[in-house]
Simulated assay, not measured.
Amino acid sequence: MDSEDKTRIAVLKSLIKDEPSRIANLANASALLGEYLDRINWVGFYLLDDNELVLGPFQGKPACVRIALGKGVCGTAALTKEIIRVPDVHEFPGHIACDAASRSEIVIPLFQADDFIGVLDIDSPFLDRFSEEDQQFLEAFAETLSLYL
């Protein structure tokens, strides 16, 4: 992670460290990522609720509200509890197209202590938008955020 990424995580911490509301913290986190990341068309959260993912705070066009575990990129990341970086969503089996303009995607599972609580989902209208460096930053961002949820 470079110094710019470390600064971005410090900004996240300063916004959420004293706020007890999960929804407020997720809303500010999605707004920050919307400002920090270029060439994206959607950034937000899906939260685990009764064995499915339910739409949480986000930036972008209206989105799918409920996603079954194991379905699409988000549901697969939720089921496996692993980061998934997809260079071309049209090649991902069972991809759910909430926005037809999306071409690549990255999904980061969120945990509170050891409990899975949801995912951070980011879409881009560009093929292969997300790099290994992006993944490292987003993983650190999600880990920091999870401390305050």
Rank of each mutant, 00 (worst) to 15 (best):
V43F: 09
G44Y: 12
F45G: 12
F45E: 10
Y46P: 11
L47M: 15
D49W: 06
D49L: 11
D50H: 14
D50Q: 14
N51E: 15
N51A: 14
E52V: 11
L53E: 13
V54C: 09
L55C: 11
L55E: 12
G56M: 04
P57F: 01
P57G: 01
P57W: 01
G60S: 06
K61C: 13
K61T: 13
P62G: 02
C64M: 14
C64F: 06
L69S: 08
L69Y: 12
L69D: 09
G72L: 06
G72C: 05
G72S: 10
C74Y: 08
C74M: 09
G75W: 05
T76M: 01
T76I: 04
T80F: 00
K81Q: 15
K81M: 10
K81F: 01
E82G: 03
I83W: 04
I83T: 15
I84E: 06
R85H: 00
V86Y: 08
P87G: 12
D88R: 05
V89D: 06
H90I: 03
E91H: 14
F92T: 07
P93F: 06
G94D: 12
G94V: 12
I96K: 11
A97P: 11
C98F: 03
C98P: 03
D99A: 09
A101M: 10
A101S: 15
R103D: 04
S104M: 02
S104Q: 01
V107K: 04
V107M: 03
L110S: 10
L110K: 09
L110W: 08
F111M: 07
F111D: 04
Q112G: 07
Q112R: 14
Q112F: 12
I117R: 10
I117K: 11
I117E: 01
V119S: 06
V119W: 01
V119Y: 02
L120I: 05
D121S: 06
D121E: 09
D121R: 07
D123G: 02
S124T: 10
P125N: 15
F126P: 00
L127H: 11
L127S: 02
D128C: 07
D128W: 00
D128Q: 10
D128M: 02
D128G: 02
F130W: 06
F130N: 05
F130M: 08
S131V: 00
E132A: 07
E132N: 03
E133H: 07
D134P: 00
